[in-house]
Simulated scan of single mutants.
Amino acid sequence: MTLTRIRAQWERHDERFAAVNGDEHVRVLYDEGSWLEGPAYSPAWRTLLFSDIPDDRVLALDEATGRIGVWRSPGGYANGRTIDRAGRMIQCEQGNRAVTRTEPDGTVTVLADRWQGKRFNSPNDVVEHSDGTVWFTDPPYGILNDYEGHRATPEIDGCHVYRIDPDGSVTRVADDFERPNGLAFSADERTLYLVDTHHRHLRRFDVGADLSLSGGEVLGTSDAGGYDGVRVDDGGRLWVAAHDGLHCWHPDGTLLGKLLLPEVCSNLTFGGPKRNVLYVTATNMLLSVRVTVAGIR
């Protein structure tokens, strides 16, 4: 691969987006994937992990050297992942229909693979709450065919959102989605943002003291394909992966602007020592751009 750069195209829809800017160019760090997903940044390792789902491998970018190599293969047709507060990697494995955690010694712990005795569809994306609970979405993409997993018949009545408690119990927290996908907490964890890719919706839920969800109103709708991954920056803005790039929403429901990119975007995360580097998985490419905002810690 020859490293290339793409001129950054910032499209402003609201004056408040003027505070958001960044590098003049977006860097193409990698372009040899089939369908890239699930970027998660480890500040301890200064490493970005991301998935090439159809090729069933997890790749790693060493931020200090710029080198990219295979971190795990096979990778369970892994999709979304997060680095928890103990520095461990939690990921959704579509092929194994499970949420797993990689321990410091490299062993893998299955956090959950069933709901009331029935196998999940194909866990897709995951976040951790500060209390140690793990929240994830469960659409069917990994069992629809053999491209991103293993073709199988669903055992669960639909596609839902779940929470794994530290004791291993699993609770269904939302059941009115067609294709739940990306999810992210606000900085104070009083709000959970959830994507429904089928309806192109970005939805907002209130998180109760007992971790129950209420509300669920549509905050925004994509005008460029279905939404996928979502992250929150230190100004409370939401960054959502879409077919034409990244859409930036204010929590009041205003589309502030877009970062237009050349390929369909699946997911994103903030990385770098200051958490001000946007890493984006976009079809076969891993992209990066340094911006004037930072991801929440």
Rank of each mutant, 00 (worst) to 15 (best):
V195C: 01
G168T: 13
D23L: 09
A152Y: 08
T109F: 05
W239K: 04
T191L: 01
G87E: 11
D234Y: 06
G117H: 13
F177C: 10
L268H: 06
L49Q: 06
T100P: 00
V173C: 09
T65C: 02
L194V: 12
L59K: 03
V289S: 08
F120P: 07
R190L: 05
A64D: 15
C265S: 10
V126S: 04
A184V: 03
H199Y: 09
P154W: 01
H199T: 15
G38A: 10
L111S: 12
A174F: 02
R46D: 13
Q9F: 04
W10Y: 15
V293N: 05
G272F: 06
L268F: 06
R72S: 11
I68T: 12
E37P: 02
L49N: 09
L59R: 08
C92E: 05
G22D: 12
D157I: 02
G142K: 00
A187L: 03
H150S: 14
I90M: 07
T47D: 07
I83G: 04
T109S: 11
G80Y: 02
L183I: 11
D196V: 00
L260R: 14
V161R: 01
I83R: 03
A78C: 11
V195F: 00
D14A: 14
L3K: 11
G95A: 08
T292F: 05
Q116G: 03
R16I: 10
L259V: 08
S122W: 03
N181V: 05
T82C: 14
L238R: 08
D84V: 11
D146M: 05
Y193H: 02
R81K: 14
L278M: 09
V289G: 02
V134F: 04
S42F: 02
I83E: 04
N124G: 10
D234M: 01
R85Q: 14
R119F: 07
V161P: 08
T254H: 13
I90E: 11
E189N: 04
Q9N: 15
G295K: 01
V26L: 05
F17K: 06
G257F: 01
S130N: 12
G226C: 06
Y147P: 00
V277A: 03
